[in-house]
Nucleic acid binder design. Structure first.
Lengths: 119, 119
DNA sequence: TCCATATTTAAAGTATTATCGAAATATAAA
DNA sequence: TTTATATTTCGATAATACTTTAAATATGGA
């Protein structure tokens, strides 16, 4: 992931309402929730919520799919995974790391492990 | 960590220049770098850099300490650790998690493990 | 003391982002 | 059809954030 893209994702999550929306969807799991349920839970007016949902969708942190009158939004776990991999890249792989720092196993790291193990 | 605080940290990292500064400091390790070295590396004018350094300091992602004429900035790994713990809280502890998602070991998780193991 | 260097602060302009009512669109139900 | 519900888009406003020049502060050396 390039720095530009990571900054975009971080900026998207760097707003209280959007972060709340995203966390709600993470908690909701793969099935997600429809927009009005989110708005009700977080007490956001429809237009405001729609603005933030559009932002999160644009950067790929959530996706929405129409289901009759509703649009069901769900978290894009893969994108978040990549973001976390990016964030931990330079402080969790042995170099330049303080003891308190997170040691994370992300898709990226699993891949490189598998690559070494595989034929 | 409360959502508000996490959003602040994410917003701080959600700007290309600040993210670049932070990553540079993470790479530099605990010793950090002084402001002019950062500015040179990233080609940022002094006032702009200072603005971003102040922002990162304010939210606790970096710290600066004067050393003669220079101010040496370094990453606050502990803050980043907490942020990553927050981000992985609801998708990496067994519930509501897709296979691709990061499984992370952060200070918070180590603590709760220790709490269970300890007397 | 005077000068040079490192960095910040002030000030002011520009640009971007957020909010929300009202109107528009999409779908389903009556 | 008409009506109701879910959601988005528009439009106007307000609020924040970013950038930069110039001036200020802090420190060390001549």
């Amino acid at each position: 992931m390039e720095t530009l893209n990571a900054a975009e994702l971080l900026a998207a999550l760097g707003h209280e309402s959007r972060l709340a929306v995203f966390r709600l969807l993470v908690q909701a799991g793969p099935d997600g929730m429809n927009a009005s349920a989110i708005g009700e839970q977080l007490a956001l007016p429809p237009a405001t919520l729609s603005f933030h949902l559009a932002h999160l969708s644009r950067v790929g942190l959530i996706r929405g799919q129409r289901e009759s009158r509703f649009i069901r939004y769900s978290a894009e776990f893969a994108t978040m995974d990549e973001l976390i991999a990016f964030l931990t890249q330079n402080c969790c792989q042995g170099q330049a790391c303080l003891p308190r720092t997170a040691t994370c196993d992300t898709t990226e790291k699993r891949r490189s492990r598998l690559a070494k193990t595989a034929t």
